[in-house]
Simulated assay, not measured.
Amino acid sequence: MKKFISIDMQATGKQIKKIMLQQGYTINDIKEYLYLKNPQAIYKWFRGESIPKIDVLFALSKLFNVPIDDLIIGESLIIDNQNGTNKGANANE
């Protein structure tokens, strides 16, 4: 069996939204800070449809004054090579 860690897009989006709200930022604040033309990308992060690129994660970590690791939620997948099945477990590292 192999252990593989991937980013949980839904949990990461929820985490970014949670930190944003805790610190009193609005979607418009984030949009302007990142020089986005519209907030659609931000809504996609919140819904877990996509995740920010690394340069955006870096910018958000600076804005929120938190390490990038605090923005990303990982998921450990154990892959059974014999029968091709995956078992997921949340890895909040």
Rank of each mutant, 00 (worst) to 15 (best):
86 N>H: 10
70 D>R: 09
16 I>W: 01
19 I>R: 00
41 A>C: 09
30 I>A: 02
31 K>V: 13
41 A>K: 04
81 N>A: 10
76 S>W: 01
75 E>G: 02
24 G>L: 02
77 L>Q: 09
75 E>W: 08
82 Q>N: 05
71 L>A: 07
68 I>T: 14
55 D>W: 03
72 I>H: 02
66 V>C: 04
30 I>Y: 00
88 G>K: 08
24 G>K: 01
71 L>V: 13
17 K>A: 07
80 D>H: 10
80 D>G: 07
32 E>T: 15
20 M>D: 00
35 Y>N: 11
49 E>M: 04
16 I>L: 03
57 L>Q: 01
63 L>D: 00
62 K>V: 11
82 Q>T: 10
42 I>M: 06
40 Q>K: 05
25 Y>L: 05
76 S>K: 13
38 N>Y: 09
53 K>Y: 06
54 I>V: 14
73 I>S: 08
49 E>G: 09
86 N>K: 13
51 I>L: 07
82 Q>A: 02
23 Q>V: 07
59 A>L: 10
32 E>A: 14
40 Q>G: 08
45 W>C: 11
29 D>A: 06
35 Y>P: 01
51 I>N: 08
40 Q>P: 03
83 N>H: 09
67 P>I: 11
37 K>M: 04
64 F>V: 06
51 I>R: 04
44 K>A: 15
81 N>E: 13
89 A>C: 10
70 D>A: 14
58 F>A: 11
67 P>Q: 05
26 T>S: 12
67 P>D: 09
84 G>W: 08
20 M>V: 04
81 N>I: 12
31 K>A: 04
35 Y>K: 12
78 I>Y: 12
50 S>P: 10
66 V>N: 00
80 D>V: 13
54 I>T: 14
66 V>P: 02
